[in-house]
């Protein structure tokens, strides 16, 4: 006989994998929109550090000159992205899964141990429930960011009809920057997530599809 551990419920797996193509389409169509006024850059004094984005970036990915197409995809897919996000949060609350995800008092201290351990700078293995402290913080943060994207998105989508929201967020221009920065945040999350999944190995990845993991 072999021991298995039921790790991810069917619902969690569905929400996760449905979100994947939706977030992809949101970021892709968002870039088509951003291209039309791609003015953001990092600059120190007069020195340009980085331009979002260099011309070659748009050309390489085929993102130039498709503003109308980007808007059509963005404002259609946003509904599915929002619905999936709301259902996920409701599920975690009702099922009690939130207890495994939400950070606790100790999480912030422990998360630091996780970082040191993962970077090979410490030998102390940090405590690990279903998720370790760093995972709890980041998985919660990324959901908060998702709702941040929805709010900043509506603030620039309907800045007259919902002008109170736009003004809370610092105005139209500020809300557009916030919306963009959150997107950069998702891209950063995605990169770290992929690296961690690869590091954690096949068995862990497989559990996101099968739901269970063999215990040796």
């Amino acid at each position: 006989m072999q021991k298995i551990i039921h790790k991810h419920s069917l619902a969690i797996r569905w929400f996760h994998w449905i979100n994947f193509p939706l977030l992809f389409v949101m970021i892709w169509s968002g870039l088509l929109i951003y291209w039309a006024n791609g003015i953001y850059k990092i600059q120190i004094g007069e020195t340009l550090i980085f331009k979002f984005f260099p011309k070659g970036f748009y050309e390489f990915l085929g993102l130039s000159g498709q503003l109308a197409k980007g808007m059509a995809w963005h404002f259609a897919t946003m509904w599915l992205f929002t619905i999936n996000g709301i259902l996920y949060v409701l599920y975690t609350i009702i099922s009690g899964e939130r207890r495994l995800i939400l950070p606790t008092k100790n999480s912030f201290k422990e998360a630091w141990q996780v970082v040191l351990f993962d970077l090979g700078m410490s030998k102390i293995s940090p405590p690990q429930d279903k998720y370790n402290a760093a995972q709890k913080i980041v998985y919660t943060l990324v959901i908060v960011m998702g709702f941040g994207s929805i709010l900043t998105g509506w603030a620039i989508f309907r800045p007259v009809q919902i002008s109170w929201l736009t003004s809370i967020l610092g105005g139209y221009k500020a809300a557009r920057i916030e919306h963009f920065m959150l997107t950069l945040g998702f891209c950063l999350f995605f990169l770290v997530h992929i690296v961690q999944v690869i590091k954690a190995g096949w068995k862990n990845f497989q559990s996101m599809i099968t739901g269970f993991e063999k215990v040796d």
């Binding site: 006989m1 072999q2 021991k3 551990i5 039921h6 279903k130």
Partner: peptide, 20 residues
């Protein structure tokens, strides 16, 4: 998280089903 004892054959079947 729930643990369960099962046969290797059952695990294989479940895995294939999930991936399909």
């Amino acid at each position: 998280m729930k643990e369960e004892l099962t046969s290797n054959q059952a695990i294989r079947r479940k895995t294939i089903k999930a991936f399909l």
